[in-house]
Amino acid sequence: MSVTDRINTTLRKVPVWVLYSIGALWPAWLLYQAATGAMGVEPVKALEHELGELGLQALIVGLAITPLRAITGVNLIRFRRAIGVLTFYFISTHLLVWLVLDVQILSEIWKDILKRPYITVGMAAFLLMTPLAITSNNWSVRKLGPSWRKLHRLVYPTVLLGGVHYIMVGKTWEVEPLLYMAVILTLLGWRVTQARKKSKSRRQPSAGASRVAS
């Protein structure tokens, strides 16, 4: 049995609810740390940042599943819905901390959303994610048919906006957000390349056929 097969066999034994449980408790753990001083003297900003970063990480993991399977054969597709739903949950808690603990004042919140570009960008990403979270269930997949796949391509602009939001938060060009953006662009770039290959092979059926045959 190859290493890939062994990994996949092991992964099949992990129930998806394990991932849901860990993910659900993670923000609570961060909140506990913030409340008990483990996040320093300004726990609100720290918590907000941790949750936002967690959401972006989850988005990137979700985006990496397809390329990972195509390149290495490791199959995480079973977990993809859970990762997607958790991403939305993480970003919702990030937003909630910003609203309730950070900005606090309703009129300021509205002003920030309209007038602060990085907040506008972040809010746009959140709005794009919302229909994806709502339709992450079997019923929606059946009901929407082929348009479900089209709808869920919204994850691409979402992750781009998320990466841009992170870069814009900093006062200077900071290294970490730029690294996140590099990973995001690599993952999206891989998809563009794949799509090009596909359309090429459709236009030249013989070349495509010979590749499949080899």
């Binding site: 913030a34 409340a35 003297v41 300004e42 726990p43 609100v44 918590l47 603990l101 950070d102 606090q104 004042i105 300021e108 002003k111 920030d112 007038k115 602060r116 570009p117 990085y118 814009m168």
Partner: peptide, 17 residues
Amino acid sequence: RWSQAYEKPIGGGLFAK
């Protein structure tokens, strides 16, 4: 990129106004 109308005093913990 942000309003300067309000400030957050450091040291008030998670629920600082």
